[in-house]
Nucleic acid binder design. Structure first.
Lengths: 147, 147
DNA sequence: CTTCAATTGTTGAATATTCAATATTTTCAC
DNA sequence: GTGAAAATATTGAATATTCAACAATTGAAG
């Protein structure tokens, strides 16, 4: 039976370490797939979130895509240069900026999504449907607990 | 029943995203604890791995602590300045450098480990023993599958 | 209404990470 | 044994991220 890490358990038994390791590995796989389109994982996230067609403020977006505000600002600057997204000042609250995805961004988002889905299918294939579903359930629950 | 992400599933259903989110959250909690000693999470990992008293090469260590080689080199430089670890040229293979933890490093490692264990206990408390154990098992299995 | 605090987003400087190139040593084919 | 290729660690330049300060706007107390 696996026990919680006591005095001198190896680092590989710590939840924080296992999460970092698994995240690193899966992220690297995804990165490799997305590199076909020359796009970092974070931009896939941004495009995917914006693909609901709604305008999202920078703060909202930063939370959703797991980036700090200044990092997001600079990444969005690049994506604006690439004409993937654009800024609109929120008329209801002029402190805010609403982000929208362009047609070009939508097209890219579809291609990226197909790559991401294919990665996930590949994982399900080798790791198993049951394990994948259960792992997702546990992760969601952990995230819910932590907040 | 949770399904694999199809055409337009939200990003929150992707395994890669859930892992990133969970990792971010747990890592942030751990970071907060360790900040009591003014030490980043990576240094905890390094000290913990080296605490077996054996000498570890930089390559070995980089794999173990999930850092790229150049990043590790520079972090080790800082830790050497802080007298937490020291370098010894491997006599069997002079390309290699063996890293060892100093007494000061060992003492810090014990304090850090106690903080890390307390974090994990806190997670088990709110998240549950069964869920934690099961999540760890699934993560280990995923990591094994991915390699 | 006015003022002060809070919210939102961006900027620039400081810091950290990554990529490519390098130096050194070992391994292996011949 | 020699020379070419591989392995190991580090360096410096390019890039990215973070922190603290800022500007603009809104909210709220008086």
């Amino acid at each position: 039976m696996a026990k919680p890490p006591k005095e001198n358990s190896p680092i590989t038994e710590h939840l924080a370490y296992l999460l970092a390791q698994a995240n690193r590995e899966i992220n690297r796989q995804l990165e490799t797939r997305l590199s076909k389109e020359g796009v970092p994982v974070e931009q896939w996230r941004i495009l995917k979130v914006l693909s609901d067609g709604e305008g999202h403020s920078m703060g909202e977006l930063a939370d959703a895509v797991l980036l700090n505000h200044p990092t997001l600002t600079k990444m969005i600057d690049r994506m604006v240069s690439d004409a993937l997204v654009y800024r609109v000042q929120d008329p209801k609250d002029r402190r805010k900026v609403l982000m929208f995805v362009s047609d070009r961004g939508k097209a890219l988002s579809r291609r990226l999504n197909s790559l991401a889905v294919s990665q996930e299918e590949h994982i399900v294939e080798s790791y198993g449907d049951k394990s994948t579903t259960e792992l997702k359930r546990l992760l969601e629950s952990l995230i819910g607990t932590a907040n």
